[in-house]
Design a protein around this nucleic acid. Structure first.
Lengths: 179, 179, 179, 179
DNA sequence: CATGAATGAGGATTCATTCAT
DNA sequence: CATGAATGAATCCTCATTCAT
């Protein structure tokens, strides 16, 4: 339900579709928000697991990274709440802590491997890639890109190409210097 | 208020912060939605105007495009509702019609000029640029990028570099062929 | 305005149609209700005047009464607020005091004249006739009777015939006796 | 509540008097209007049922008709919203469709039976009787007739007598002729 | 004295959460 | 332990009335 309708779904709808009563729902999850976080945590765990495996099987680190982003794009396209909350990772200290705990290490690994192999633009960090993910998530939710999936793949391609080591120019950094 | 808190703000809050009563608000705008659309329309008009001028004064088309995106990024960073509704341009037929009417031609012009000058990756459309805008908008709203503005500029840089004519590989198109 | 739309009209509408500002309206009438009462009072005065004259010119008391009711019916058909408030005469002590003061004597006179001439069913009082007026008022306001005026005239005819001296049976009286 | 105060009662008042919260009310009835219509429908059903039975047990058609009107009068006296909405039957196409569906056939039957028995003034239609009902409804709501019930019975008596076959004169018809 | 913008209480409706059965 | 009816705070919008200009 969260995947389809986002975090706005009526809890009654959720209970009804789950085939249980409201009470049962609230016994297991004290709050709508906790339910959502739980659902998302499971999604992150599964995503992390799959991503880790895919990365392990893929010897080409560049391809590993782009495969990860391609997969992420499709996941976001099919999961409204994921998109809505994934962004929060960056904002709320606790937020979807799950995301930070589970997913970020995978991204960091991919970035490190790519840098080691020299297939990633210098200076790109895991944080940069995560931000691109947030950006892609928003794109994936647009009705237009749902009807014409090639649209979101074009955007992804542009981002991937922007990450190539072809671009040696430094990315902007904290202009106030190291403080 | 819309800029700061998005379209969810309580109308009472809006009225209070405007220093007026509910009635005054509703005298000027028949509906919360009309108020929002009015605010956004003004923003789009101003944005369009500025963008057009900037583009006219800038002889270098590539710089014109990146200046446009940089400006858009800052605008989105300071305007939650803008971000929320700009995306809708892609979904709701009517939606923020203002956006389509006012802003899209500017984008199309920029893209055309860049292509004519050969400074834009082949195949990139105005639609692609608009999608990047939506993506950037989401980024700009993150608390993290508000505290560390260089973060969003990094993302923008990656996107801009992905748009360079260096990348000659074709972008994905409707795989079902021309129908 | 009250005549056309009833007492629900927006005061702003009234002011606008009168070509004055709200302040002017409220200078003359401290309250919407006072305005309505004033308007109605004028109507009652005019009605009373006309009714008195008509009655004076008409030698046949029966015809005078039925002419009065016919006229009242048409007035009610064209005056929503009149209908809405005329009924209140019976309820609120002050209410449209104007009505009691201005119109009721006319009715009482007509009834007395009819009784004196023996053309009215025994026992019928001015109060009975006034109640019939209230009843007719409601009828006159129905859309159906506005489109087909003969409908309301049929109802009036039935009432008038019910008032004929043909009917000698006593009308119900306070069953608890004279207390 | 509707019976006592008419359709203007605050839903909160309704909920409070029902001893339930707002939510409970809205769980059962999606809209204030639906609630009203439901209440009225039940009333119409019950009314129809009773009226049909009374009519069936009464061999004298004239008495059946006057009993029906007497009963209607008392019902209206105790039900403000009934009065308010019953009139609408004549105006809004849908309106209290329930009324038309449930009650009108009963009235038509009564009228037909009376005509067959020759105890009803020639030309009187079910529509005429329904209009008299509307008229009586208004009367029944007056505070004066609530305090002195004989007042409304007098009005009813006058109407009933106006319906007697004694009155052979034709009732007004559409003056524009049969078109 | 005229204006009409401003006021704000009041009314219908929604939905996350609780609790008696 | 499961149920789902009940709760009521929160939200958008209307309109009679006031008051600064």
């Amino acid at each position: 339900m969260f995947a389809m309708h986002g975090e706005c779904v009526d809890v009654r709808e959720i209970a009804r579709c789950a085939g249980v009563g409201m009470g049962t729902l609230y016994r297991h999850f004290p709050t709508k928000d906790v339910l959502l976080e739980t659902v998302l945590h499971e999604d992150f765990v599964e995503w992390t697991h799959t991503a880790r495996q895919d990365a392990a099987f893929q010897n080409d680190p560049a391809e590993a990274l782009s495969a990860f982003l391609r997969d992420a794009l499709e996941r976001h396209a099919n999961h409204r709440a994921l998109v809505e909350r994934f962004a929060e990772t960056w904002d709320t200290p606790s937020g979807i802590a799950a995301c930070k705990r589970d997913l970020h290490p995978v991204i960091e690994d991919l970035v490190t491997r790519c840098h080691d192999a020299g297939v990633l633009r210098p200076g790109v960090t895991g944080e940069d890639v995560s931000l691109l993910l947030v950006a892609l998530g928003r794109i994936a939710q647009l009705g237009a890109t749902q009807e014409r999936p090639e649209l979101r793949q074009r955007t992804l391609q542009i981002m991937l190409d922007g990450l190539r080591p072809t671009h040696q120019s430094a990315l902007p950094t904290n202009s106030s210097g190291p403080d």
